[in-house]
């Protein structure tokens, strides 16, 4: 990868401080994100997967400076975004958009579809008032909705239609990069496929770059260029799609893939499933060393003490595991 990446994330850290106890007398730190580094290439779809609380959504939010980073850098167009305050961040927001999980709650219930889509265009001066209606109609068409939907309120639309509106609103800024934060998780199966196809169409048409955050591995396999697996605030593995799904290296990735059910009863019956014991530990008090060692089937002594290095096991295939070394892989 010798091309300059669109966005460079270096050692990103996000800690939340919470109050505990009935009177908030104790404080604790949630280690939501620790030492996450990744490059996002122009035009690719980089997916982040992992279980709830693994920090995949926090990564998206922190990259976009919607959460303030506790450490590390996010480089976009030569600028470290983590250093920008709200006002200086604003011009970058146009380029860097986000589509949220829940299309029900991310639209202002008191604004019509047209107003919601028109707002960012007017604010960023991307359209004059006179041409606004036309541009809104074009965007609605782009996401497969008729232009008369402009006068509807969000509650009058179905979930899939709302997610189309949210996507149109993100597109209104003419972005380069969109974080899709569980953008299809709240939708019905038959609608999910429609939205995935729409996202792929739009990527082709506008040369968009996606950071696709999801927990559905089958969907991720379908649409990604590269896939990163996160566990408890750290990246466990990051590889080109096929490498990750066909030759996963990290024991957590292997377990995760093994847990995904398949729509094939015969294969399911004969499948040797590796079932992980226990639960994900609390991010308030993450395990020492490798954070996965409490559930890892091959954990050794070293794993409990030393944080595994984030290294390339093969070209472009990064992994953080003591049991994987570059020569054997």
């Amino acid at each position: 990868m010798n091309v300059e990446p669109l966005l460079k994330v270096e050692n990103l850290v996000k800690h939340f401080h919470v109050r505990l106890g009935a009177f908030g007398e104790r404080t604790a730190t949630v280690h939501a994100l620790d030492d996450v580094s990744l490059d996002i290439q122009q035009g690719e779809t980089l997916s982040l997967v992992g279980e709830s609380g693994c920090g995949k959504s926090t990564t998206g939010f922190t990259i976009l400076n919607l959460h303030r980073a506790s450490g590390g850098r996010v480089i976009y167009k030569g600028q470290d975004l983590t250093l920008l305050d709200d006002k200086r961040m604003r011009p970058f927001r146009r380029d860097l958009q986000i589509v949220f999980q829940d299309p029900y709650s991310t639209l202002n219930p008191r604004m019509t579809v047209g107003e919601a889509i028109g707002e960012p265009m007017l604010f960023h001066k991307l359209a004059a008032k006179t041409e606004l209606d036309d541009k809104i109609a074009t965007l609605l068409q782009d996401v497969g909705l008729p232009s008369r939907f402009a006068s509807r309120y969000p509650h009058e639309l179905s979930g899939g239609q709302r997610q189309r509106v949210v996507i149109a609103r993100a597109l209104a800024c003419q972005p380069k990069f969109i974080v899709c934060d569980e953008a299809i998780s709240a939708l019905d199966v038959s609608i999910q496929a429609q939205i995935i196809n729409l996202l792929l169409d739009l990527q082709e048409k506008y040369g968009l770059t996606y950071l696709f955050i999801a927990h559905d591995l089958a969907v991720v396999r379908h649409i990604s260029t590269r896939v990163g697996v996160m566990y408890l605030g750290r990246l466990a593995e990051l590889a080109p799609r096929d490498a990750l799904f066909e030759t996963p290296l990290h024991p957590y990735t292997k377990a995760l893939l093994s847990a995904v059910p398949e729509a094939d009863p015969l294969r399911e019956r004969n499948r040797k499933r590796q079932i992980l014991e226990g639960d994900v530990p609390s991010p308030l008090d993450p395990p020492s060393g490798c954070r996965f060692h409490t559930r890892c089937p091959i954990a050794a002594d070293v794993c409990t003490k030393i944080v595994p290095e984030w290294k390339a096991a093969r070209p472009g295939h990064l992994v953080a595991c003591h049991a994987v070394n570059p020569s054997s892989a």
Binding site: L64, L66, D86, K87, M89, R90, P91, F92, R93, R94, Q97, I98, F100, D102, S105, T106, L107, N108, P109, E119, P120, F123, H124, V166, R169, A170, C173
Partner: peptide, 17 residues
């Protein structure tokens, strides 16, 4: 704390708007 406020911030709108 509503998501649509976060969404509006993500669109880069100003605090006043």
């Amino acid at each position: 704390s509503r998501p649509y406020i976060t969404a509006a911030m993500a669109l880069g709108l100003s605090n006043r708007i």
